[in-house]
């Protein structure tokens, strides 16, 4: 039997909002330690990896490893019925289940809703993502990053990200013209979620499709800050921590440098 009880249903709502527009169906791998999801968009340019450890749950039981093939649109419809402060319980048999139950309990205990969603058979190819030493890490406000991606997509369909010792520059150009947004490493880190830290081993200069970045920033409500990790000619990593019990990591393949 697999059963996981989340005190704050709102978190699962936010996770679904973060993945459903990028990956329609996903394999939720559940084992004794965590629930992990890895999925790619249809063009194999972007990938999302979600990890939620057992300690995020008020109650977590996973007698045998089980993989739940989830249709994220169906799951999202169910979670739209949940309030942020509802308790959400996920339940599934652990012998090749063909469905998953979701129970929503209102905070005052007066309302209980239960749903059964059919699981889907998915043959996605999973990718092995090697641990990598990145040339640059940029930690910044997640809201600020979302704003930059949204603003620059008015000017072009791609953003050039260049990191130097002291700052990170986001540039885009198209028939409207050219736009540059430069963030400078914050001298004082008084409020973490408003400061910018650039940790550079060597300069990077890469170009990425803004369409995908604007899908990644749907995870903005999950964390006040976001960390970008970059290396020359390697996929960009955009990471949102889920408290200290997990993360949502997006990977985006760069445009080919001429």
């Amino acid at each position: 039997m697999f059963e996981a009880k989340l005190q704050q249903g709102g978190l699962l709502k936010k996770i679904l909002e973060s993945v459903k527009d990028l990956v329609v169906d996903g394999l939720w791998d559940c084992d004794g330690a965590a629930i992990t999801l890895q999925g790619m968009d249809s063009s194999h340019v972007a990938l999302v990896e979600m990890l939620l450890r057992a300690e995020a749950f008020e109650h977590y039981r996973c007698d045998r490893n089980v993989t739940l093939g989830m249709n994220h649109n169906h799951l999202s419809k169910i979670l739209k019925c949940a309030n942020n402060d509802d308790i959400v319980i996920l339940k599934a048999a652990d012998q090749n289940p063909d469905s998953c139950s979701l129970i929503l309990e209102s905070k005052n205990g007066e309302k209980t809703s239960d749903f059964v969603v059919s699981l889907v058979r998915i043959d996605t190819d999973q990718l092995g993502i090697p641990e990598t030493e990145y040339s640059a890490h940029v930690k910044m406000s997640s809201g600020e990053f979302q704003r930059i991606c949204r603003d620059l997509s008015q000017f072009g369909d791609a953003v050039q990200i260049t990191c130097s010792k002291q700052d990170v520059k986001f540039s885009s150009s198209g028939e409207t013209g050219k736009a540059n947004i430069t963030l400078t490493h914050s001298a004082t880190v008084d409020k973490e979620e408003e400061s910018v830290t650039v940790d550079l081993k060597e300069p990077v200069d890469l170009t990425f499709a803004l369409r995908f970045l604007n899908l990644f920033t749907k995870a903005t409500p999950i964390s006040d800050t976001v960390t970008l990790s970059l290396s020359q000619e390697a996929p960009l990593v955009v990471e949102y921590k889920i408290g200290d019990s997990g993360h949502i990591r997006y990977f985006l393949a760069p445009k080919i440098q001429e």
């Binding site: 790619m40 063009s43 194999h44 340019v45 972007a46 990938l47 190819d125 999973q126 990718l127 092995g128 993502i129 090697p130 369909d157 791609a158 170009t207 499709a209 390697a234 996929p235 990977f251 393949a253 760069p254 445009k255 080919i256 440098q257 001429e258």
Partner: peptide
């Protein structure tokens, strides 16, 4: 517009 890499160019299938 520049052409686009795919993730399989960087990550191996499991």
């Amino acid at each position: 517009t520049k052409s686009q890499h795919q993730l399989e160019n960087f990550f191996t299938r499991k």
